[in-house]
Write a protein that binds this DNA or RNA. Sequence first.
RNA 1: GGGCGCGUAGCUCAGUUGGUUAGAGCACCUCGUUUACACCGAGGGGGUCGCCUGUUCGAAUCGGGCCGCGCCCACCA
Length: 868
Amino acid sequence: MTDRIDELRERTRFEPSEVEPRIGERWLASGLFHPEPEGSAAENYSIAIPPPNVTGSLHMGHALNGSVQDTLVRYHRMSGRRTKWVLGTDHAGIATQTVVEKALLAEGSSREQLGREAFVQRVWEWREHYGSTIVEQFKRLGASCDFEQERFTLDEGYAQAVVRVFIALYQKGYVYRDRYIVNWDPGSRSAISDLEVEEREETDTLYSIVYDLDGGGSVTIATVRPETLLADTAVAVNPSDERYRDLVGRTAILPLVGRRLPVIADEYVKTDFGTGQLKVTPAHDPNDFDIGQRHGLEQISVIGEDGRMTAQAGERFEGLTVRQARTAVVAALEAEGRVVAQEPYKHSVPYSHRSGERIEPLISLQWFMRMDELAAPAIDAVVSGRVRIVPENHRRVYLDWMDNIRPWCVSRQLWWGHRLPVYYCEDCQETYVAAQSPGRCGACEGELRQDEDVLDTWFSSALWPFATLGWPEQTPELRAFYPTKVLSTARDILFLWVARMIMMGLEFTGEAPFDEVYIHSVIQAPDGRRMSKSLGTGIDPLAEIDRHGADAVRFGLLAMSSSQDVRYSVEKIQQGQALANKLFNAARFVLVNLGDVADLGADREPQPQTLEDRWILSRLQRIEADTAARIEAFDFSHAALGLYDFVYGELCDWYLELVKHRLGPERSAQERQALAATLVRVLRETVALAHPVIPFVTEELWSYLGGEELLVGSAFPRLDQTLIDLEAEAQVGRAIEAITLVRGWRDSVSARAALIVPARLNATGYEAMSHAIARLARLDLDPDGAGEHEPIASVSIPGGAVEIRSSEGLDLAAAEQRRAAGRAKLEQEIARLQTKLAKPGFAEKAPPAVVDGERVKLSRLEAELQAL
RNA sequence: GGGCGCGUAGCUCAGUUGGUUAGAGCACCUCGUUUACACCGAGGGGGUCGCCUGUUCGAAUCGGGCCGCGCCCACCA
């Protein structure tokens, strides 16, 4: 141990890059991150990590969420609960497939060329190579996940759970196949769900186009998508629109095509938009699709899944891209003189969140999932408080969405993912939904063919909290860790993922998958824009860890976080770095000076000898209680900043300064041992207290402070009521105030630090602290012949004043100015208080405690003014 | 169109149920080789709490209106 302390003497700085890998390895080797599956979920503590994409690398969102979850996990582990942080990654259908397709493209190949089987094989290989990147990055953050049991949403066991769920939902009639209008993403060549569509404001041209009516007259419709006119199957007006009452039932002639379109009446049509006459294109517009359903209209598809015009669009347009078709259709219409107006028009346009391409609504045969029955219990769970959403204002967002939930398109035209467990007979088209192919068609003995599609990635993610623990088997893991306690995430996947997990959890396990949903901030770029790779506004958390250390990044992110979006501020990260260094040096100072007498092996009772010893032990109890309460309330920002304030504002600035003089070798061994007992206790508890937030530096220090076990597996310090000492807090608090006031005065008279100023303490309440005041305010409180001279200056402090006895080395003229300013300020404040107290109504209506408080304050200020 | 939230010191943010002289970190200024830490210490300057208007003995805090900003949801061609 003495060798280590000698070595510590030289380490004047905390070096994260040296410490972190070493500590990280010890944690992993300890096995403490991997709990045995014992006990019940109620008594254990578990969190399921939002599985990052296998293709992903750690971004700020991961770093913040990782810090949040790890703080919770470490805190509860230290609180004595069997704690498991379930780790794993998501196969991320589109994202991963795209990455591998790009690689193939670079090789001059393609997935089509490879064929399905070889391609999927190729993706697995890719995953073997790169899939652990983000997991390793979480380790660098200090995340204490169960790395020994990493899951993947395409694991064999997981895949079985997915199949089982699909079949069960099919049997219940929730999952069904239908031809329906979907959001077609030409980029990924797949349908996507409503939630994966984002609206962007765009300015297009709004064309007004004249359609002739059979038998004379015309209608004028407005559209931003003239190319879809080729698929029109009706013209609609509002039934209450007086202007067009007699139009209903007549027939319009579709320009360029000549198709006869019935003029129908439908409530959807707004009378105050455009002409009030609407072209109806059921196959290429979701609203028109609905109108078509209501009126039994024909659905004509003119845009194909490849984003080109189909044969149905007619020879002139077949094969053109949508954009080319638009130009061509407009030109053709203009040639016929049918375009009567063109105006710029700003509206929102759907884009694929996945590929970034413009969504093409079209009719397609897809698998859907009806959600309303599943939503009902999931609504209940939140309404009843069984699942608590924090902060609460997100509750309503959740409930609103759930109340209006719509069917979910779950099939994707991809190769990478959970292939639908659906088989069709080649001959009679019979459909079989089963875990394994039934072999041959039961009806006609025909060949069976499995559906080509895979499931939406979010379908499998929805099972995450229980599928990762072995469901549907009743595994020990499932019993011990399901339901989990907290689901922590940003709000962007509240619907996409959280809501669906609640629904699936309730449906398949009968229990909500977690008790609480914590929704944390979104960290924005320093300029307030979104952090994103494409904007170039992203900040790489790993680079920040390299620069400042993982503790600093964790502290900074937690200190920044709140219930709303916040801008990234390096200053907070630096504050964390400073804290780690400060704590390191405080411990180092104590160990280097008291290492020879400190009994580090045992957790010795502190032996407070002085007021300041009692004071720090009392203050320590408060920060212990506060920190625990803040972590439990998800108030990470105050938890982190509160630790900073304690370490700086109480432990280092005051306690260590107050006891420095008691460390020296000139003191008796007994005295030094007693001090060491208190100091070591305070340091051990402080370090343990801060561990959930800044695990690396604290674990490192713990190894010096006599931790036999790793700190990560030790106990979180708890408030000891018997150590709360109001008397010590009051006395030391007063002394601190006095010292600060004298220091301010010293500065105003330009007293040099080395100058010990002769003075007399003419105040009550400082008996036990006068030596401390003398030392820290650099006063000689017992000068020879102190009583003989009149004081040449006076510094007022609570309960009296410090009378200055010599002007040597002091610039008293400079002080006068300051004193005058102080006096003016006091007078002003006194006047304010007097007015307030004299005001009719104040004394009668304000609570007595407040009135008394103001009176006390007034007399205190008057005394201070007097002293000046 | 609906919903949520925000506007407090130069910057990033705290400010419990309305009641100390509105705070912190960073930045800025002055001083400093005091038994750890210069990633340090001591001291200091800096705010009409977006604007207006109510309620109240008392408003950064509660109500109303306005201005500015962000996010989410939504089918107006």
